[in-house]
Design a protein around this nucleic acid. Sequence first.
DNA 1: CCTACCGATCGGTAGG
DNA 2: CCTACCGATCGGTAGG
Lengths: 187, 187
Amino acid sequence: MSRNTKEDVVAAAGRLFATRGYEGTSMRDLGGELGLLGSSLYSHVGSKQDLLVEVVGRGAELFQRSIDQAGEVDGTARDRLRSMIAGHLDVVLDHRDEGRTFLNEARSLDSEHRSEILSARNRYESAFRTVLEEGTADGSIMMDTEPAIGAIFLLSILNAVERWYRDDGKLSRADLVDEVLEFSGVL
Amino acid sequence: MSRNTKEDVVAAAGRLFATRGYEGTSMRDLGGELGLLGSSLYSHVGSKQDLLVEVVGRGAELFQRSIDQAGEVDGTARDRLRSMIAGHLDVVLDHRDEGRTFLNEARSLDSEHRSEILSARNRYESAFRTVLEEGTADGSIMMDTEPAIGAIFLLSILNAVERWYRDDGKLSRADLVDEVLEFSGVL
DNA sequence: CCTACCGATCGGTAGG
DNA sequence: CCTACCGATCGGTAGG
């Protein structure tokens, strides 16, 4: 049993924030998770709010990186959309704690960070909207729904995946991507 | 300024639970919302948890009633699906507080009520799955996604509607129902 | 519905 | 990372 690092603290915070919520997690809970007292956490972090900022920020960064990578995919808009969907699923399934905290606990952020996160979410959504527009233009995507609504519907599906999908089930992630594309009329 | 009724208390609780979360709402907050002290609430309600049970229970009842009504619609499975979607949107948009609390705050329920609510949600989802199966059988619904996944995708979209849809926008509710049906390949 | 509380718990600090 | 705290706030009760 060596000492905990700040990494350990942030990871445990993500776990608790994701499962019990920010308000439902006390610093003593978090300390208990790491085998130390609540007050000992303050040698790693300035405040509980700082921890939330850190966890949500990591979520934001993961989504951002995912979409940046998808943007570099060459091919049709449909290829990029597929890559965006696969990337989103990977973030949400491989980084459940940060993803869930990013998606669900933003309301507990101070107003400054909260509006940053809302902007990040808007930019992310607009990237989906844009790729749907491009797909309509280059003929690679035939969606009967307009891009603004289609982007919202897609993200609604993708954000909820974490709640029901299990990697050890019958459906592989690659198949899940296809199911999403097929459902939304792209495939 | 007459006295508050229990109705007022439950309604205000729904408002606060939906916006700040159960853990983020104190009995003093709730009292303040009604112009009285936190301790005064205990003449209307036994505990804070009772209030959550009440609000979530109302959400459950609204969804249940909606799906029961849709089940009585005669016509094809597609007609019933349309009615289920429209009903869901009405619940989620006309009773935002109860709907959001039902969907988001179940984790704060004691385990007994929580498992009741999870069962109710499963039954609700299976009603969607069933209508998709019937629609495939009677030929009124052509969905390329299998019913189990289609039901999840549909509900993911419908549950998220409350987060972005405004009644005073360009899109009417009836059009929204069509958009959902079209997106999912039913129309 | 208020007054006047209760013990428990909260986020956080000082000092080591 | 612990000891030993701090003031504030929590859900809730007794009695009117």
